[in-house]
Each structure stands twice: as C-alpha cells, then as structure tokens.
Design a protein around this nucleic acid. Structure first.
Lengths: 194, 194
DNA sequence: AAGTTTAATCTAACAATGTTAGAAAATATA
DNA sequence: TATATTTTCTAACATTGTTAGATTAAACTT
C-alpha cells in the first residue's frame, strides 16, 4: 500500500504549493491581487483544483494565517531553549516577532490586519507560553501578570505596526534606525518591570 | 448666478452622500463588501455616477481616509483649546484617538490598515501638532523629542489595535476594562517622561 | 416660446473575479 | 481488457469594477 502513501504525500504537496503560491503573489503584488486563477497558473493547474483543497478563498486565507502562526511558534519554541530567565526570553521573542514581520510582511499583514479578526487556537497557544514568563516576572500576582502582558503585547504590536509596517514617523527628513529603536523600547519596558 | 452656486452645493452633497454610503456599508458589512453598485443603490443613482465624482474605487477609498483624518484633526484642534499644558493635551488627544477608533471602527481600519500605506498630508499636519507638545516636554532636545514621540505613537497605535480592534488578550475567560487599561497605560507613559 | 446647445444621467456592455456542474481523461481495480 | 474510481478540465454562472455611447433633462439663444 505504499503507492497510497505516495498519493497522500503528493496531495499534501499540492496543498502546500497552493499556499506558497498565494504567499508569493502577495509578497510581490499585495494580497488584493491574489486571485484563484493566478494561484492555479503558478502551480500549473486549473482554478477548480484549488477548491479540492480549500472550501473557498476565505478558507484558504484562514489556513495561510495558521501557517504564519506556525512559523512564529517555531521561532518562539526555539527561543525558549536558548534562554534561561524570563526576561531574556521575552526579549528574544520580541526580536523574533520583529524579524518575522520584517521577513514575512505579507503574512504579518494578514495575521494582524484590523479587518479580519481571527481568534484561533494557534494564537492562544502562543499567549499561554508567554503568559508563563510574565507569571514568573510578576511573581504570580494575577493582576500584575495581566497588566504586564497586555502592556507588552500592545507595545510589540504598536512598534512593529508603526515602525515596520506603516512607517509613520519620522515626520521630517530625519531617518531613524527602526530596529535599534525597537530594541531600546523593549529593553526599557522590561527594565521597568519589578 | 445663484443657481450655479446651488448646483455646486448639490454636487458637493452627492459627493458626500457617496462617501457616507460607503462608510455606512462598511460599518454594517465590512469594507470587503463595499461595492460601487451598493453605493449607487443607497444614493439612488446608477453606478456610473460614482465615476463622475471619483476616478475609481481606490480614489474613493483614499478620499474616505482623508475624511477620517479630518474628523480626527477636528478632535485634536478642539482638545488644544481646552488644555493648557502639554501633558494634559497629550492625554486628551490620546483619549480622542481611542474614542475615534471606538466610534468609527471602519474608518480606523481603513486609515491604519497594514496593507495600504497612505502617507498623506492630513496625517503630517497631525504629527506636526503633536510634535510641538513633545518639544515642550523634551525641552527641545531633538533626540528626546524623536524618542518620546515615536514611543507615544507606538503605544497608542498598539493599544488601540490590540485592545479595541483585534481584541487579542485577555487569554482566558477573564475580562478587562479596556478603556481603563488604556488610560492607565497612557498615564504611566506620560509620567515616565522627564 | 421654439430650437439648440450643454450637462446630467442611464443603458448596456466589457473584462476579471469567485465558484460550480458536469464532461473528459487518467488511474486503479476486477 | 472492461469497469469503476479518482483526478482534472471545460464551460458556464453571478458578481465585481469600469467605460462608451445613448437618452433624457436643463440651460441658453434668438
């Protein structure tokens, strides 16, 4: 029954190809110009094939968001192995998130676009991991944990959105080193704790 | 020649109706289901009329973003009249931005969506106004002005995105008073200055 | 006031999109 | 080799943004 497994693998491969094609198109031309036909073209199939693997376009998009969280989670997990104390870990995953956004702009856009709200399981697992750290830092004071963590999430999200995605300030001709600025902000926040 | 002015006014009114219709549809069904035909329906005209007032859909969207910044600017200007010192003013406009996002979710989405980057004049004027405050707070130390201001922008953007738009945390069943939390964060930030 | 010009609006189409039904081709099974 | 099943495609549908050209309404001229 080995050829059945091969088929399974091939199907899985096509599925992946569809997702990758969509991401690739988005990276080059933006999500608004990702179409089923372009995806089909890229994977050298006809459009209806996409519907063998995904219910519809929205479903495909949802799956792509999951892929994004998976990538992010892998980064987080590997950071956990390298860092000993909670503070270092938080600093590390802050940077991971920055780099993820930098290297996967389109994915970040989709995952945290203000329009489509995606409360998914993959995201929750991420938060649980991070929550543990804050429990340590806040010495299990539930109130404080909540406060620190929310603060941290807002800071990261805001900094990446503003500095990396929207590129709002600097107002004049001045330029700033966004990454250095980001790191400084994170450090200041973590130092302000305890 | 008074009837010519009336015509002018009527045209302006239709233009406004188009914009308002688009916002209304977005408020009810999201931006992705705003179509030219629905807009035309709502203002009781046929689709081509929209193109008498806007080059195309993207142009219409851009104008709607401007409307958003105008509303925000009005709020900022009026805050300036009420508050005496820079800190109070910054606190006030932080709250204005929060309330704007709360009352105009769709507009906020459009203005700060991570996909379409809109570096426009209306936005710049806003920043200039705010920059003055930070100049006062940072005692004209250019470096510090930059730092404070960027920090503030990130904080506001992040807090509103996370607490109000994405509604990411709280992780478990716990609920938090987002607005109280937001105010606390702003106060803490402003107090940390100087 | 009638005819003419100009402006405002609509009808009807186009190409591109998501999506689906059913045919055709390829593969597996007997 | 014949049949059943799976995979893939063709051809269509409705819905989108958009435009050209017809039609109607308004304004102007004499």
């Amino acid at each position: 029954m080995t050829h059945i497994e091969r088929k399974q693998r091939e199907k899985e491969e096509i599925r992946q190809n569809i997702i990758n094609a969509a991401i690739k198109i988005a990276a080059n031309e933006g999500w608004h110009s990702v179409t089923i036909r372009k995806i089909a073209d890229m994977i050298e199939y006809t459009p209806p094939i996409v519907y063998e693997y995904f219910e519809n376009k929205d479903d495909l998009m949802k799956e792509i968001v999951y892929v994004g969280f998976d990538i992010l989670n892998v980064g987080f997990e590997s950071a956990r192995k390298n860092e000993i104390n909670s503070k270092e870990f938080l600093k590390a995953i802050s940077l991971r998130q920055w780099n993820f956004a930098k290297e996967n702009r389109e994915l970040f856009q989709l995952m945290f676009s203000l329009e489509r709200v995606v409360p998914n399981e993959k995201m929750k697992r991420q938060f649980e991991l991070i929550e543990k750290c804050f429990h340590e830092l806040a010495k299990n004071d539930e109130e404080l944990v909540m406060e620190y963590m929310t603060n941290w999430v807002c800071l990261i999200q805001g900094a990446i959105s503003v500095l990396l995605m929207l590129k709002l300030p600097p107002p004049k001709d001045r330029t700033i080193d966004e990454e250095a600025f980001f790191i400084k902000m994170i450090e200041r926040f973590l130092n302000s704790i305890e």
